[in-house]
């Protein structure tokens, strides 16, 4: 509540050393292992989204939740791991129309020198 009434207003103050993003493995096509891991691409922005932008705002909400969960030791904390899986599945279903029965995801980090580190890779997850 205190943070709500007295926000710090420190927007975009400094670039983080690593940017976290998710990659998903949903493909059953005949592609190489590297090609099967893809990032979710948001559709091109339209001006009317100034008035109504639920998907993008929800993706940012899930992204901040994921970043917060990653501050915990997810390998050791089964509750945090479950939450992370839930957020990953939600992020995937925000922009995917095809019916999935199983998927995998991995948490990647792009470092300052543009290298990609894989922080975590999930086992196959069955879609509820």
């Amino acid at each position: 509540m205190f943070k709500l009434l007295f926000p710090s207003w420190r927007f975009f103050d400094r670039p983080s050393t690593q940017e976290v993003f998710l990659e998903f493995y949903t493909s059953t096509e005949n592609k190489s292992e590297t090609e099967k891991w893809t990032e979710i691409e948001a559709p091109p922005r339209k001006f009317w989204q100034l008035l109504h932008n639920p998907q993008e705002n929800c993706r940012l909400f899930l992204q901040s939740k994921i970043e917060e969960l990653l501050e915990e030791d997810i390998q050791e904390n089964s509750k945090a791991m479950k939450e992370l899986e839930k957020c990953a599945q939600a992020t995937l279903s925000l922009y995917t129309n095809k019916a999935l029965t199983v998927f995998r995801f991995r948490v990647c980090a792009q470092t300052a020198n543009n290298n990609k580190d894989i922080l975590f890779e999930s086992m196959p997850i069955e879609v509820d």
Binding site: S8, R10, F11, D13, R14, P15, E19
Partner: peptide, 26 residues
Amino acid sequence: LAGFAKITEAKWWSGEALKHFINRSS
């Protein structure tokens, strides 16, 4: 305060920070 938090960052004066947020953020 948003500006004050940025002025001590050399990357904001060089434009590097803005470029970072545009190209590498979520």
